[in-house]
Simulated scan of single mutants.
Amino acid sequence: MGSSFLLRLVLTLGLSVLSVAAAALDKPSGPVVLTVTGKVSQKNAADGARFDMAMLEKLPQHSFTTRTPWYPEPMTFSGPLLRDVLKAAGAQGRQLTAFALNDYKTSVPVEDAYRYDVIVARLLNGQPMSVREKGPLFIIYPFDDLPELRTETHYGRSAWQLKTLQVE
């Protein structure tokens, strides 16, 4: 391959990334299930980026099966990667505070979203999660993939009934 071809390829890919990053975030048409506040550049509301379930479903979906302290058997979690949600909101911070419907809150380093395939799970074993079943959203780490994730610290960063991510 010639250097001019590589240059054109890099420029094309770069412009494509810029156009995706510059795309405005749609407004939710259904009930808001997640709000990303704080240091975000892609706002669709005064308080930040709001997502309904359909918006989260449009992001690339991922699944993994893992054991957790909360279920007796391994469970399959599915949803967008946390890093994809942060990119969609234009998050520009280093720390997240996750808030749950039950007033639980936990700190999650943004680095975790890029280092591990952390999912904002919207499905448990292929089914939507009710609030009673820790839903509708659950930040979950792939605990079985890496022994370093099977710690109280990472279990504590997993927030079920997730409603808000504040980017700091």
Results as ranks from 00 to 15, higher is better:
residue 131 V to T: 08
residue 144 D to Y: 04
residue 127 Q to S: 11
residue 112 D to K: 14
residue 116 Y to R: 10
residue 136 P to M: 07
residue 104 Y to R: 07
residue 90 G to A: 07
residue 68 T to V: 01
residue 79 G to H: 06
residue 73 E to P: 00
residue 90 G to F: 01
residue 115 R to C: 11
residue 91 A to T: 03
residue 128 P to W: 06
residue 120 V to E: 06
residue 126 G to E: 04
residue 144 D to H: 02
residue 81 L to F: 00
residue 74 P to I: 12
residue 133 E to I: 12
residue 111 E to Y: 14
residue 113 A to S: 09
residue 93 G to E: 07
residue 93 G to I: 07
residue 139 I to L: 14
residue 79 G to L: 12
residue 88 A to L: 03
residue 100 A to E: 06
residue 113 A to K: 01
residue 92 Q to K: 15
residue 68 T to K: 00
residue 124 L to C: 03
residue 117 D to V: 05
residue 77 F to S: 11
residue 69 P to C: 07
residue 137 L to F: 05
residue 115 R to N: 14
residue 81 L to H: 03
residue 97 T to G: 07
residue 113 A to T: 05
residue 115 R to D: 14
residue 71 Y to F: 15
residue 135 G to H: 00
residue 95 Q to M: 13
residue 75 M to N: 13
residue 102 N to G: 06
residue 104 Y to I: 12
residue 143 F to M: 04
residue 88 A to D: 05
residue 115 R to S: 15
residue 136 P to E: 07
residue 113 A to F: 03
residue 141 Y to T: 02
residue 146 L to Y: 15
residue 112 D to E: 08
residue 71 Y to V: 11
residue 108 V to P: 09
residue 110 V to D: 05
residue 125 N to I: 01
residue 98 A to H: 01
residue 125 N to F: 00
residue 132 R to K: 08
residue 68 T to S: 08
residue 70 W to C: 02
residue 73 E to V: 13
residue 109 P to C: 06
residue 89 A to P: 13
residue 124 L to A: 08
residue 118 V to Q: 07
residue 117 D to E: 06
residue 130 S to G: 14
residue 124 L to W: 01
residue 105 K to Q: 15
residue 77 F to G: 10
residue 122 R to M: 15
residue 90 G to L: 08
residue 105 K to F: 12
residue 116 Y to C: 04
residue 70 W to I: 00
residue 88 A to F: 09
residue 118 V to Y: 00
residue 105 K to L: 10
residue 139 I to W: 03
residue 137 L to K: 09
residue 118 V to K: 02
residue 111 E to M: 12
residue 68 T to A: 01
residue 133 E to H: 14
residue 83 R to P: 11
residue 141 Y to V: 06
residue 74 P to A: 14
residue 133 E to S: 08
residue 123 L to D: 14
residue 128 P to S: 08
residue 101 L to S: 05
residue 129 M to S: 09
residue 76 T to G: 07
residue 126 G to M: 03
residue 141 Y to H: 01
residue 99 F to W: 15
residue 69 P to F: 06
residue 101 L to Q: 11
residue 118 V to W: 01
residue 126 G to P: 02
residue 111 E to Q: 13
residue 105 K to T: 13
residue 98 A to D: 00
residue 138 F to Q: 00
residue 89 A to S: 13
residue 120 V to K: 08
residue 128 P to E: 02
residue 100 A to W: 12
residue 123 L to F: 11
residue 75 M to F: 02
residue 70 W to Q: 00
residue 132 R to G: 04
residue 134 K to D: 10
residue 110 V to E: 04
residue 123 L to Q: 04
residue 77 F to P: 09
residue 102 N to Y: 04
residue 80 P to V: 02
residue 146 L to A: 11
residue 95 Q to C: 03
residue 83 R to Q: 15
residue 96 L to I: 15
residue 93 G to T: 12
residue 110 V to S: 09
residue 77 F to V: 06
residue 73 E to F: 09
residue 82 L to P: 05
residue 78 S to Y: 08
residue 140 I to V: 14
residue 137 L to Y: 09
residue 108 V to F: 05
residue 84 D to I: 11
residue 81 L to V: 05
residue 98 A to K: 00
residue 107 S to A: 13
residue 78 S to K: 11
residue 78 S to P: 14
residue 95 Q to S: 13
residue 97 T to K: 11
residue 120 V to L: 14
residue 76 T to D: 01
residue 112 D to A: 04
residue 108 V to S: 10
residue 137 L to P: 02
